[in-house]
Amino acid sequence: MTYSHLGQNLNMITFLSVIGQSVIANLTKTGRGTLFLKQTLSCTFSVLCHPRLIIKQLFSVGVLTVLIITISGLFVGMVLGLQGYYILSDFGAEETLGVMIAASLVRELGPVVSALLFAGRAGSSLTAEIGLMKATEQLAGMEMMAVDPIQRIICPRFLAGCLSMPLLAAIFSMVGVLGGQLVGVTLLGVDEGAFWSQMQSNIDFYDDILNGVIKSLVFGFVITWISLFEGYDAIPTAEGVSRATTRTVVYSSFAILGMDFILTALMFGDI
């Protein structure tokens, strides 16, 4: 065997070894994440017995996210109103503008855009908070005080995230519809009665609204899980927490968009 062949074989072995290590590391992390979720879920009942813990987190995770959700929802609804009007008016169907705006919002844009905003605003904040608590030994300190940090710190935030997300998506959709009405009815002159009545008769509670709520529940579960686990699993240094926060936003965004496709296919498609 020549030296060049030997070198190629070594490069191939190194390449395979790097891939193998990466696969093992990712599988190990997935396993840690699953165990973390199991521990978190096992504390749910005891945390529900202390509602004050959840209420406090509902404020920081949910209430503080309302402003960004409301403003974004308003602008998304206004853009939908504009675009929808220009397209529908070509076909003389501008009276169905309300249906188009509401269906787009409750089925897709409400859950998805509010989830992306939630991941950026609340998810990154959760990761940074937990990561810094780890870096400053607060979690270890609780352990040494015989207080389970999963029960006292993680689980209340997890439940707050899961509860907040559907409510935030509902606020997003509601404000979006109002934004669409503002542009479509008030500015562009679509008939107000047609706008609301078409919406009322064509939007189905189970097919549209409930499916949107289910989507936002799933997104809330996944985003909060990723955010809390990344913080809990972060390397306890400034750089480690910074990287974990970035991973939260990236992984959450991928998860939201990927799961949206799967959920849409299951709910509305024939796949």
Binding site: T136, E137, Q138, G141, M144, M145, V147
Partner: peptide
């Protein structure tokens, strides 16, 4: 955890809970 209730530990960094004031930190356990 039962055993740890009988053990106190002073961490190098202090490890105080930053969302609580001094009084509440001591009252926490």
């Amino acid at each position: 955890y039962t055993l740890r209730k009988k053990m106190g530990m002073l961490f190098q960094s202090g490890a105080l809970l930053t969302d609580l004031n001094v009084f509440d930190n001591v009252a926490y356990p």
